[in-house]
Simulated scan of single mutants.
Amino acid sequence: MAGSAQNTAVPVGAEAKPAPPRSRLGRRRPGAFLDLSVQVGVVLALCLAWEAGARLGAINPFLLPPLTDVLARIGEDAASGAVFVDLGLTLYRALLGFFIAAVIGIPVGILMSRVAVVRWFFDPLLSVGFPMPKVAFLPIFILWFDIYDTSKVIMVAFSCFFPIAAATYAGTTGLDKWPIWSARSFGAKEVEILWEVNLPMALPQILTGLQVALPVGMITTVVTEMLMGGRGIGGSMIMAGRFADSVGVFAGIVEIVALGFLVVKSLELLRARLLAWHPETRR
């Protein structure tokens, strides 16, 4: 017994093993809860000020209806199913145009950084087209295509293409040359270098371009619906405005805010998952 206890005893002066680190999902950034609390508090304060200003007569209820009336209208539209149809159509047009722009813009940006002829052709187009208002082309797209979903989706894709292609070109051009040279020294082919070195290194910049393009696509979708009419959040807002239905107009604004928030946050979560290996996620 004494020998057994002597064998299992911890030697004097021996250092204890450090506890295993918690998983990355279990760690919390200091101050994250405080940041979230402040953001929620600001939103609640704005909502209370909106409601109080309309109820107390500080603001004309027609110009700014009470928030409770707006939420009640959204509840009525949700009960009838109209709000889900409008949200679904707007989301469908925005995401389809965004996906088309990503499928075209990412390869174009990569080719611009690797093929001189492609860069010579697209660089002036990006320089001219990036800052100009894309909605100016809407009458042309209506003449070329139709007044239904086709022209709206193409308008969204056209608006999203420029930030995606520009971000991809910038991300794949300014890469560190040492990993590429190392891969070549080990006999890696150019296709392998592209998929296993270039794209992972440029992925943060590409995702930033996608995060910039997605809100642009949402804005373009709502604007085209307002200008062309039909079902969708933008079309419903214009119809409500024609009938002087201020509650309906603000209901559409609240719906756009909620939809945009969910879509943008979903893309942020996708970015964090795709960049789980990157230092920005571990930070």
Rank of each mutant, 00 (worst) to 15 (best):
M1Y: 05
M1F: 08
A5C: 00
Q6S: 12
V10T: 10
V10G: 04
V12T: 12
G13D: 07
A14E: 14
E15Q: 09
A16S: 14
A16N: 06
K17G: 08
P21L: 14
S23Y: 08
S23E: 13
G31R: 05
A32L: 08
F33C: 05
V42K: 00
V42A: 14
W50D: 07
A52Q: 13
G53Y: 12
R55Y: 09
N60H: 05
F62Q: 10
T68Y: 04
V70E: 07
V70Y: 03
L71N: 06
D77E: 13
A78C: 11
A79M: 10
V85I: 14
T90Q: 07
L91H: 07
G97P: 10
G97Q: 05
I100V: 15
A101V: 02
A102H: 02
A102W: 03
V103K: 01
G105E: 03
I106D: 08
L111P: 11
S113M: 09
R114Y: 00
A116R: 15
W120D: 12
F121A: 02
F121C: 03
P124F: 09
L125D: 00
F130N: 05
P131E: 07
M132W: 12
L138R: 08
P139C: 11
P139N: 07
I140Y: 03
I140R: 00
I142L: 11
W144F: 07
F145V: 05
D149A: 13
I154V: 15
M155Y: 06
A157Y: 03
F158A: 02
C160A: 11
I164N: 06
I164Y: 00
Y169W: 14
G174S: 02
D176I: 00
D176F: 07
K177Q: 13
W181G: 00
A183H: 02
A183N: 03
S185V: 09
G187P: 04
V191A: 13
E192K: 09
E192I: 10
L194K: 05
W195C: 03
L199R: 04
L199Q: 02
I206Q: 06
A213W: 05
P215G: 09
T220N: 02
T220H: 01
T224A: 14
G229A: 03
F243V: 15
D245N: 14
G252M: 10
E255G: 03
A272F: 11
R273F: 09
L275E: 10
A276W: 07
W277A: 07
H278Q: 10
H278F: 08
T281R: 11
